[in-house]
Protein backbone atom coordinates (compact mmCIF):
# COMPACT_ATOMS: atom_id res chain seq x y z
CA UNK A 1 0.00 0.00 0.00
CA UNK A 2 1.73 3.16 -1.05
CA UNK A 3 0.36 6.60 -1.59
CA UNK A 4 1.78 7.06 -5.05
CA UNK A 5 -0.16 4.09 -6.35
CA UNK A 6 -3.59 5.41 -5.52
CA UNK A 7 -3.43 9.21 -5.53
CA UNK A 8 -5.36 9.38 -8.79
CA UNK A 9 -8.28 7.48 -7.32
CA UNK A 10 -8.24 9.57 -4.20
CA UNK A 11 -8.33 12.86 -6.04
CA UNK A 12 -11.20 11.48 -8.12
CA UNK A 13 -12.99 10.55 -4.89
CA UNK A 14 -12.39 14.03 -3.48
CA UNK A 15 -13.87 15.56 -6.63
CA UNK A 16 -16.85 13.23 -6.55
CA UNK A 17 -17.58 14.12 -2.99
CA UNK A 18 -17.32 17.84 -3.70
CA UNK A 19 -19.91 17.38 -6.40
CA UNK A 20 -22.07 15.27 -4.12
CA UNK A 21 -21.85 17.97 -1.44
CA UNK A 22 -22.94 20.63 -3.91
CA UNK A 23 -25.95 18.53 -4.92
CA UNK A 24 -27.22 17.94 -1.42
CA UNK A 25 -26.57 21.29 0.21
CA UNK A 26 -27.42 23.86 -2.40
CA UNK A 27 -31.02 24.82 -2.91
CA UNK A 28 -30.56 26.52 -6.27
CA UNK A 29 -31.81 24.06 -8.88
CA UNK A 30 -29.25 25.02 -11.53
CA UNK A 31 -26.43 24.72 -9.04
CA UNK A 32 -27.76 21.34 -8.00
CA UNK A 33 -27.55 20.17 -11.61
CA UNK A 34 -24.02 21.50 -11.96
CA UNK A 35 -23.12 19.64 -8.78
CA UNK A 36 -24.60 16.49 -10.24
CA UNK A 37 -22.46 17.01 -13.35
CA UNK A 38 -19.40 17.42 -11.17
CA UNK A 39 -20.25 14.21 -9.35
CA UNK A 40 -20.72 12.09 -12.47
CA UNK A 41 -17.78 13.60 -14.36
CA UNK A 42 -15.52 12.72 -11.45
CA UNK A 43 -16.73 9.13 -11.59
CA UNK A 44 -15.56 9.16 -15.20
CA UNK A 45 -12.07 10.10 -13.98
CA UNK A 46 -12.14 7.03 -11.74
CA UNK A 47 -13.03 4.77 -14.67
CA UNK A 48 -10.44 6.26 -17.00
CA UNK A 49 -7.79 5.96 -14.28
CA UNK A 50 -8.54 2.25 -14.15
CA UNK A 51 -7.83 1.95 -17.85
CA UNK A 52 -4.40 3.55 -17.81
CA UNK A 53 -1.40 1.31 -18.33
CA UNK A 54 1.99 2.73 -17.44
CA UNK A 55 3.92 3.48 -20.61
CA UNK A 56 0.89 2.77 -22.77
CA UNK A 57 -0.59 4.92 -25.51
CA UNK A 58 -4.04 5.65 -26.83
CA UNK A 59 -5.73 2.50 -28.11
CA UNK A 60 -5.43 3.31 -31.79
CA UNK A 61 -3.39 0.67 -33.55
CA UNK A 62 -0.20 2.09 -34.97
CA UNK A 63 2.96 0.37 -36.16
CA UNK A 64 5.75 0.10 -33.64
CA UNK A 65 3.63 0.44 -30.57
CA UNK A 66 3.38 -2.44 -28.17
CA UNK A 67 1.53 -1.24 -25.08
CA UNK A 68 -1.95 0.26 -25.28
CA UNK A 69 -4.19 1.45 -22.50
CA UNK A 70 -7.34 -0.55 -21.92
CA UNK A 71 -10.02 0.65 -24.37
CA UNK A 72 -13.06 -0.87 -22.67
CA UNK A 73 -13.51 1.74 -19.89
CA UNK A 74 -13.18 4.42 -22.56
CA UNK A 75 -16.16 2.97 -24.36
CA UNK A 76 -18.19 2.74 -21.18
CA UNK A 77 -17.44 6.33 -20.28
CA UNK A 78 -18.34 7.57 -23.75
CA UNK A 79 -21.78 6.14 -23.12
CA UNK A 80 -21.88 7.55 -19.61
CA UNK A 81 -20.98 11.06 -20.83
CA UNK A 82 -23.92 10.96 -23.18
CA UNK A 83 -26.19 9.82 -20.39
CA UNK A 84 -24.87 12.70 -18.29
CA UNK A 85 -25.62 15.40 -20.84
CA UNK A 86 -29.05 13.90 -21.50
CA UNK A 87 -29.84 14.07 -17.80
CA UNK A 88 -28.64 17.66 -17.66
CA UNK A 89 -30.84 18.60 -20.61
CA UNK A 90 -33.95 17.04 -19.07
CA UNK A 91 -33.14 18.62 -15.72
CA UNK A 92 -32.74 22.06 -17.29
CA UNK A 93 -36.01 21.70 -19.18
CA UNK A 94 -37.69 21.03 -15.84
CA UNK A 95 -35.93 24.05 -14.33
CA UNK A 96 -37.22 26.28 -17.12
CA UNK A 97 -40.78 25.14 -16.55
CA UNK A 98 -40.44 25.42 -12.78
CA UNK A 99 -39.31 29.02 -13.23
CA UNK A 100 -42.30 29.61 -15.49
CA UNK A 101 -44.81 28.34 -13.00
CA UNK A 102 -43.23 29.26 -9.68
CA UNK A 103 -41.23 32.35 -10.63
CA UNK A 104 -38.15 31.11 -8.80
CA UNK A 105 -35.54 28.39 -8.95
CA UNK A 106 -34.70 28.29 -5.24
CA UNK A 107 -35.87 25.14 -3.56
CA UNK A 108 -37.04 26.72 -0.30
CA UNK A 109 -38.98 29.47 -2.07
CA UNK A 110 -40.69 26.84 -4.22
CA UNK A 111 -41.62 24.86 -1.14
CA UNK A 112 -42.98 28.01 0.47
CA UNK A 113 -45.15 28.75 -2.54
CA UNK A 114 -46.56 25.23 -2.56
CA UNK A 115 -47.28 25.19 1.14
CA UNK A 116 -49.00 28.55 1.18
CA UNK A 117 -51.73 27.26 -1.12
Amino acid sequence: MNIGAHYNYWVAIFLMMTGFYVVITHGNLIKKLIGLNLFTTSVFILYISLAKVKGGTAPIIAPGIEVYSNPLPHVLILTAIVVGVATTAVGLALVLLIYDRYGTIEEDEIRLKDDSL
Binding site: M16, L29, L36, P73, V95, I98
Partner: peptide
Amino acid sequence: LRAAFQYLIMGTIGATFILIGIG
Protein backbone atom coordinates in the same frame (compact mmCIF):
# COMPACT_ATOMS: atom_id res chain seq x y z
CA LEU B 1 -42.38 19.53 -12.10
CA ARG B 2 -40.98 19.74 -8.62
CA ALA B 3 -41.59 16.01 -8.08
CA ALA B 4 -39.91 15.17 -11.38
CA PHE B 5 -36.90 17.32 -10.57
CA GLN B 6 -36.56 15.80 -7.12
CA TYR B 7 -36.76 12.32 -8.64
CA LEU B 8 -34.20 13.30 -11.28
CA ILE B 9 -31.71 14.35 -8.63
CA MET B 10 -32.25 11.35 -6.35
CA GLY B 11 -32.45 8.92 -9.24
CA THR B 12 -29.24 10.18 -10.83
CA ILE B 13 -27.41 9.98 -7.51
CA GLY B 14 -28.65 6.40 -7.19
CA ALA B 15 -27.60 5.54 -10.74
CA THR B 16 -24.17 7.09 -10.20
CA PHE B 17 -23.72 5.01 -7.06
CA ILE B 18 -24.57 1.96 -9.14
CA LEU B 19 -22.08 3.09 -11.77
CA ILE B 20 -19.38 3.34 -9.10
CA GLY B 21 -20.28 -0.13 -7.83
CA ILE B 22 -20.08 -1.62 -11.31
CA GLY B 23 -16.76 0.15 -11.89
